[in-house]
Design a binder for these strands. Structure first.
Lengths: 217, 217
DNA sequence: GTCGCTAGTGGACGCTGTCCACATTAAGCC
DNA sequence: GGCTTAATGTGGACAGCGTCCACTAGCGAC
């Protein structure tokens, strides 16, 4: 992450010693570190190159510009969110098809989302700060959709299979549900409600999840 | 908004000819214009001073720095949102206490919110981009709360009075409702769903409002 | 061994936010 | 009226940012 200690080798000899792709990966890692505390605006190209121990222009060998670096950092932050959601879902026991387990998985998805937004506000803001013209779409190949929306859809389908959710109400309901959780995360994380005490925040989370539960049945 | 045409007077004589507060108001207006198309990041101090026809440092006589100017622009954008919401609510006829009218006013609030986010994405993003340390709280005097949250509370109280909403469920329900609408506005305005066609967007709005309606009854 | 490509360097440009010292104007007081 | 004083705008400067151009060291292919 930092420059190699001087003295042992001349900087010139050090030039091409990095493994292939190390600079690119290092820049994304550095950007992720910056975004963690300062959000997307803190991802400044020169600072990232400084952390990697390279001159600013070197970044332009791997990214078209600052926006493309930011886009890569955003994708990494989104992957981190998706990973924590998947971990939260996996922690709920019970076979697919069991109504209680399916409901528990839905709650786990929402909780993981809200917890991530609170624990990592910088990353959360970054995940949704994808610069214009660099949007990443859903995977078009056959790989399973591990994005937040994809995971939500999976659990909702499971709820239908388990007989908890009326199939007639299934179509499109992922959007209001996602919006409810996301709105709570935004308002309580970076928005007007960012300064509320911890107990209140937890109460807001419960209110949100039970609001969704009430709208489903 | 622009510099006075040259020729008629020397710039020196023009110096203190501005009415008191004109520069400050002009800077906020210029910032609002910049934010309209580019969001909060487009509010750049030097550009705003250029539009007002004044040297960059003049801004520091009215604001402690760029963040304080941005905070003023954010407040103006939030006021614009509140104004459009109030206008939408006022357009719904019917006496307070009438159940249908109260429900219509709730829908009008949500619709105005979503329409604003779509019609003015720059302002909408700016309204919620208040820089840290410059947050504006609710009015502590007796004046009625015209903020989005305040207007929502008023309508929800009306729904309770009209017998539409169970008083037992009233407490704190403004937050999930606000979050649902806000989340939809964010996701469909600046987030991953920003590029959806117009008909889909309208469908998302309807889904959101009926989702809230379903959760209330 | 030579060639050509890749990835890093060095220097520069214009832009930004911000600080300092200075000049001018308007307002208040006698 | 003339003087003082605070408010307000000016001019010049600085560091930091993203980005462009020309140059070069090192590696792999022939």
């Amino acid at each position: 992450m930092t420059a190699s200690p001087p003295g042992t080798e001349t900087p010139q000899a050090e030039r091409r010693r990095r493994p292939r792709g190390a600079v690119r990966d290092g820049l994304v890692a550095a950007g992720l570190e910056l975004a963690r505390t300062g959000g997307p605006d803190a991802v400044v190209l020169r600072e990232a190159t400084r952390m990697v121990g390279v001159v600013p222009n070197a970044a332009y060998r791997h990214f078209a510009g600052r926006d493309e670096l930011l886009a890569a950092v955003c994708a990494a932050a989104m992957a981190e969110l998706a990973g924590r959601m998947a971990a939260g879902v996996a922690r709920v026991p019970g076979p697919p098809g069991d109504p209680a387990a399916a409901a528990g998985r839905l709650a786990a998805i929402g909780t993981a989302y809200l917890e991530f937004a609170h624990a990592e506000p910088g990353w959360f803001a970054t995940a949704f700060a994808v610069p214009e013209q660099h949007a990443y779409g859903a995977p078009r190949d056959g790989s399973p959709d591990r994005s937040p929306l994809g995971q939500l859809r999976t659990v909702l389908d499971e709820l239908v299979d388990a007989g908890v959710l009326d199939p007639q109400r299934r179509d499109g309901i992922e959007y209001p549900i996602w919006a409810t959780v996301h709105g709570t995360a935004v308002l309580a994380g970076a928005g007007p409600l960012r300064a509320v005490p911890d107990a209140t925040r937890r109460h807001l989370q419960d209110l949100t999840l039970s609001f969704i539960g009430g709208a489903l049945t």
